[in-house]
Amino acid sequence: MSALAYFGGVTVATVLGLGIAMLLRPGFAHAVLQSAGLESIPISDGLSFYAVRVQPLFDAHCISCHGAAREKGGLRLDSFAGTMRGGKHGAVIAAGKAQHSELFTRITLPATDDKAMPPSGKTPMNTDDVTVIRLWIAAGASGTLPVGAIKGAPRLVTPVKMPEINPIAVRKLRAPLAGQVAELQNRLPGVIAYDSRSSADLILDASLKREAFGDADLRLLAPLRARIVEANLSFTAVTDASAPQIAAMTALRTLRLADTKTSDATIRTLASLKALRVLAVANASSATLTALREKGVRVYGDVNGE
């Protein structure tokens, strides 16, 4: 047989095989057409409802068996294109009609059903996850529809991440002020502490010292002001004279001045504290606090508080 015949036969066989495979495997067919450019590859943009709400669910529950590593049933759910392409038995998503979408049927089967997805042993989807997928399919299973376009979707809940502590990194983070912190912790025992084992931020709590802690002591802590995120000066002898000290604590998130001799004078200087979220005051009138409240600061203890 001549080389030409041989090659001709090979191309015919591959095309024939390809055709049969594409018939048998609709998902495979889409892949071939799309890679040949005969069909548009469905793409989703980053802000779409799919990308923000649906894909994370597939990542959490499905792609260990339907992803790059393993394509069970020929189905890949690790991308919008893969999801729309479907698996070996055809499309799994029928846009607009959740009941006809194989994927939706599978994830709503009772756990005891052996065709239920995710299969027993894997972490099941909860009712909110199923609702998100139903709403997405009902709204046309689009890859571009923005997040806000679909109403009534359950709230997005970001799972909790527990930060790993890397002692070396923490020590490096704390290095600049470590000496002063240690020295001030010895001079004013129990007043300064790191807010956690994983950060360099500091918490100042002098409330238990009562009258023994005054403006002079606060001045001592000046070197640490950039790192102080919380200051509890309730019951202490701190006065308005310390206003500049406090205002310089730019990273402050929580400030407590209850039962101190501070007044509106101190409150007025707090505008510079961009990160302030919680403020407890003593003998400060509501008027001076409205500006802070409008910026979203939760204020407690003003003279005619609600």
């Binding site: 527990m162 930060p163 502590i165 129990g190 502490a193 790191y194 807010d195 956690s196 084992r197 994983s198 950060s199 931020d201």
Partner: peptide, 9 residues
């Protein structure tokens, strides 16, 4: 004696 939490509480 007080010890700091693992991460900001």
């Amino acid at each position: 004696s007080a010890l700091p939490p693992q991460f900001p509480a």
